[in-house]
Simulated assay, not measured.
Amino acid sequence: MSSIFLSNEILIFLFLQTTIYTLLLISFIYSITILRDWDFKKSTALQYKLEKRSYLVILIISFSLFIKILLFFYFIFSIDNLSHFVVGAMCAAGIFSLEYGEISLFLKLTNLFFIGIWFVLNSLDLKRKDYKYTKIKLLLFIFIFICLTFEYILDFKFLSNIPLNEAVECCSVIFETSSISSKIPFGLVNSSLILIFYILFVLIVILNIQKKSILLLFLIYYLFIYLILQ
């Protein structure tokens, strides 16, 4: 096993990751059983039992996915701390340039996007009494769980392949770009780019406070972030 696993931050991260994954695995199993027999139009004892069970499962999912969001930032913090031990690494970017690093980070960001959509659906579903979005959000959760399973495996592959005795690329090498490729898209300047970024962010916060659907705005926001990073 890589000596990277001797890092306290990495051990804490893996412990939390495993704990949350276990909770999500339990929720995944129960979600399948709920979806299999779910029929809101029926007034049977089984349906009543499924509704009570779904409430508990959704609660566990909500808690686990919220922790996953926080865990992402702790993961970045942990990887950044490893730069003190890895030769040539000045920050987390140098370590993410290693095998499985970039794909692991990309998958985590993608999962955060779907988790955000799930929370929007869950918020809409909680406002209704007919459980209109329950099946949809459980199906989405199943998809998210599959993605999180790949993420969980990639985390171990990525962390176990971090060398301590081999030099990695530093930030100046990773982010070296030509003057053409470093241009901001759409002819924007830095000030206008920052302004648009915060306008979109504030709109998301305001709509969330007003409890309105912000799914489309989330999509626009992430699309904007994707474009400026190209």
Results as ranks from 00 to 15, higher is better:
118 W>H: 11
33 T>C: 03
62 S>G: 06
54 S>Q: 09
160 S>W: 05
125 D>E: 05
32 I>G: 02
141 F>G: 04
173 V>P: 00
217 L>N: 06
110 T>G: 14
177 T>V: 13
105 L>M: 10
175 F>L: 10
115 I>H: 04
65 L>V: 03
48 Y>S: 15
29 I>K: 14
166 E>P: 01
26 I>F: 15
1 M>I: 10
126 L>G: 00
74 Y>S: 05
148 L>K: 00
32 I>M: 04
15 F>I: 14
178 S>F: 02
176 E>K: 10
39 D>E: 12
180 I>V: 14
183 K>P: 00
35 L>D: 01
15 F>N: 09
179 S>Y: 00
69 I>M: 10
1 M>H: 10
25 L>C: 10
84 H>D: 15
53 R>G: 14
9 E>C: 06
205 V>G: 03
49 K>V: 00
157 K>V: 06
219 L>R: 02
118 W>Y: 13
148 L>R: 03
94 G>K: 04
208 N>D: 10
154 L>H: 02
221 Y>H: 08
73 F>N: 09
146 I>Q: 02
202 V>A: 13
81 N>T: 13
56 L>G: 06
7 S>A: 15
147 C>V: 01
184 I>C: 03
171 C>K: 11
40 F>L: 03
86 V>M: 11
106 F>M: 12
205 V>I: 15
187 G>R: 06
45 A>E: 12
105 L>T: 02
126 L>T: 07
146 I>G: 02
140 L>I: 05
20 I>W: 05
151 E>Q: 13
39 D>L: 00
23 L>K: 04
140 L>A: 05
37 D>N: 11
78 S>Y: 06
39 D>R: 12
133 Y>W: 14
28 F>T: 08
157 K>L: 15
112 L>R: 00
6 L>F: 15
132 K>T: 11
13 F>I: 09
31 S>F: 09
46 L>F: 03
27 S>I: 06
138 L>Y: 09
24 L>D: 04
196 I>Q: 06
227 L>M: 14
99 E>P: 06
80 D>T: 09
45 A>V: 10
187 G>N: 08
112 L>F: 09
229 L>Q: 05
121 L>F: 14
120 V>G: 04
71 L>I: 11
160 S>E: 14
223 L>A: 12
5 F>Q: 07
158 F>D: 02
51 E>P: 02
84 H>F: 15
178 S>N: 11
226 Y>W: 10
177 T>F: 09
99 E>N: 13
222 Y>K: 00
186 F>V: 02
132 K>N: 08
181 S>G: 00
18 T>E: 01
115 I>L: 02
111 N>Q: 07
150 F>E: 06
109 L>E: 07
127 K>Q: 15
